[in-house]
Simulated scan of single mutants.
Amino acid sequence: MLLAILALPSIASAAANVPLIPNVDLKIGGGTGSPEDTSTAVQLLLMLTVLSVAPAILLLTTCFTRIVVVLSFVRNALGTQQMPPNQVLVGLALFMTFFIMSPTLAQVNEKAVQPFIAGKVTQEQALTAAAIPMKEFMAKQTRQKDLALFLQYTKAEQPKSVQDIPLTALVPAYVISELKTAFQIGFMIFIPFLVIDMIVSSILMGMGMMMLPPVMISLPFKILLFIMVDGWYLVVKSLLLSF
């Protein structure tokens, strides 16, 4: 305590020699109110909005949903809890999404991004051109029953082509179609591991070892089976062929 009191003068003198933090003024407004300034502000606001919803766009308009759900089913079927970690599954799903979507993204870049950068089309025209390849991809994976559900709810006219389908109806229809497909694949993945659990449980009950959790015995056998059949290769191959 005495040392702290004696050190106060030196601390005060050192603080006096420290330069003050410069003031920072933040001004909102100050524009001329011209239509050009207003248009720029609106474009900036729209750009920030698109960036904020970019993760949702990635999840709902690409093949990411099906891939990450199937990979989660694989981990749950194995019963390995958090192995592989979520970061690994999401990273693998992202790279597979980029791989599968590369032809579609190339069309978006060719028909929308590059003309917009070159100044040949406006922002609205670029967005319209970018939506066409995405609609074609999603329409191929969407069930007619799911799409008709949302079209009938909005009482929209029957679209004559894929380009005429509104995104407000196509995106949710595509998502529920992807979820159904992913759950179908997950069900097929669960069957062999369920058989192993049943066999191990029956053997333990027959031996009178009811206090021993069957999961502890079946887990190594499930991992061994998954390795012997090259499970990750088969899962990824099935996902690629499903598109």
Score class of each variant (00 low, 15 high):
L239A: 05
D197G: 02
A77K: 09
K145A: 13
L127H: 07
L204S: 08
D230R: 07
L2K: 02
F226I: 08
M207W: 03
A156Q: 08
V18W: 05
L194P: 00
P103T: 11
Q87M: 14
S72H: 01
P55Y: 02
L45F: 13
I203H: 02
K111P: 01
A12N: 08
A131N: 15
G206K: 12
I191V: 15
Q125T: 13
S34E: 14
V121T: 13
V215E: 05
S52L: 13
L170E: 00
L20F: 06
T128N: 07
K237P: 01
S72L: 12
K237D: 10
L45H: 08
P103V: 11
S161Q: 09
T80M: 07
T80G: 14
V108I: 15
L204D: 00
K222E: 09
M138H: 08
A112I: 11
T38R: 13
V90N: 06
Q163L: 00
L59D: 14
Q81P: 03
Q87E: 04
Q125F: 01
F183E: 04
L78G: 08
Q184D: 07
A129E: 05
L3K: 00
F99V: 06
A93D: 00
M207V: 09
R143H: 11
M198F: 14
S72P: 01
S202H: 01
S34M: 08
L149N: 14
N17K: 08
F98T: 12
M216A: 11
L45I: 14
S218G: 00
L78K: 09
V171H: 06
D230C: 04
F64D: 05
M207R: 06
A112C: 05
G29P: 05
L219S: 02
I28H: 06
Y174H: 14
I176A: 03
Q107V: 07
A41M: 15
T80K: 10
V90E: 02
T168E: 15
T32F: 15
L179F: 13
I227W: 03
P192S: 04
F193Y: 15
K237S: 12
D146T: 01
P214W: 05
P159D: 04
M198G: 11
L45M: 15
C63F: 14
N17R: 13
V113A: 08
P133G: 13
T142V: 13
I203T: 09
F116V: 11
E110S: 12
D25A: 12
L20W: 04
V69G: 10
